[in-house]
């Protein structure tokens, strides 16, 4: 994922094929050594001025691996996935674009 913060630890997102208007899950991996205190996930459709109708549920699988459930993209088009990671009080935002058919 991309971030505007300099030297931000790398973050990777893994998802199987994303279904339209059906719930899905993703895995978020956070690289580096800095301890992670919290991960928040959201998404918006920049072209349509709306976000997710359901709040994603984040569960820690390990210190650096998080599972995100209850994601649902209710329209085809370009979605912007937003991941916010709290590294010991320092919050870093990441985004990544997902085109859904």
């Amino acid at each position: 994922m991309g971030s505007e913060t300099q030297n931000a630890p790398a973050v990777h997102v893994a998802a199987a094929a994303i279904p339209l208007a059906q719930p899905f899950s993703i895995l978020v991996t956070i690289c580096g050594e800095t301890a992670v205190s919290e991960v928040r996930v959201d998404a918006i459709m920049p072209a349509h001025q709306h976000g997710l109708n359901y709040a994603p549920k984040v569960t820690a699988i390990s210190d650096r691996l998080f599972r995100v459930d209850d994601m649902l993209f209710h329209m085809p088009g370009l979605w912007e996935l937003q991941v916010n990671v709290d590294f010991n009080g320092r919050s870093v935002s990441y985004t990544s674009e997902i085109a859904l058919k």
Partner: peptide, 11 residues
């Protein structure tokens, strides 16, 4: 999950 996590909004 849907009734648990559905968001409310003015829109």
């Amino acid at each position: 999950w849907a009734v648990r996590s559905v968001r409310r909004s003015h829109s």
